[in-house]
């Protein structure tokens, strides 16, 4: 019996190759979705990407966040001076965009926009229940365009 990890470099290299590249046959659906993701590349140089900085679902000790007794899930996105916070519940999405400057916000899946609404004077907005799968919010306010990181909301 040989020890593991292999003591010889060739053996370890072969194991690494298998680990990195032999994942079995990647489902065609995964390949198709990965290729299609490129269509969502945004070319707007003025675009601000608001990255996901907080998700209550991933906090240590949090109870199962969805489906359980109406508990809501909170997420925060930040990009430069822009902060976007949302609460996702069975009733849909409510959120706030800071700094507030009116404007419009839409929510989209990889299949396209599923809801769009206006942002009020203090930055509040509400959107419908997100479909399963990754969702991205897209806001235009005061000459600024913001998109969030894609994230599964339910």
């Amino acid at each position: 019996m040989e020890p593991w990890p292999p003591v010889d470099d060739a053996g370890l290299g072969a194991e690494l190759r298998a680990a990195l590249w032999d994942a079995g046959e990647v489902p065609e659906e995964h390949l198709r979705a990965a290729r299609a993701a490129f269509a969502w590349r945004t070319v707007d140089a003025e675009l601000t990407l608001a990255e996901l900085v907080f998700d209550s679902a991933c906090e240590a000790g949090a109870a199962g966040p969805t489906r359980s007794a109406g508990s809501a899930r909170n997420l925060s996105f930040r990009g430069g001076p822009i902060m976007l916070e949302i609460e996702v519940s069975a009733a849909g999405i409510v959120g706030q965009l800071c700094p507030a400057d009116g404007g419009r916000i839409s929510a989209r899946t990889a299949n396209g926009t599923y809801d769009e609404t206006s942002v009020d004077a203090v930055g509040l907005f509400s959107l419908g229940v997100p479909p399963p799968g990754p969702v991205q919010l897209h806001a235009r306010a005061g000459g600024v365009t913001v998109v969030t990181d894609w994230v599964c909301l339910r």
């Binding site: 680990a19 990195l20 590249w21 032999d22 994942a23 079995g24 990647v26 489902p27 659906e29 995964h30 390949l31 979705a33 990965a34 993701a37 990889a110 399963p132 799968g133 990754p134 894609w150 994230v151 599964c152």
Partner: peptide, 25 residues
């Protein structure tokens, strides 16, 4: 790189729609 992503997903015991959603995300 899809094999790398897929192998990580599989090592987390995710399948079906969950696996597909992680991959797409």
């Amino acid at each position: 790189y899809t094999p790398l992503v897929y192998s990580v997903i599989r090592s987390h015991d995710l399948g079906g729609a969950d696996a597909a959603d992680v991959n797409q995300t």
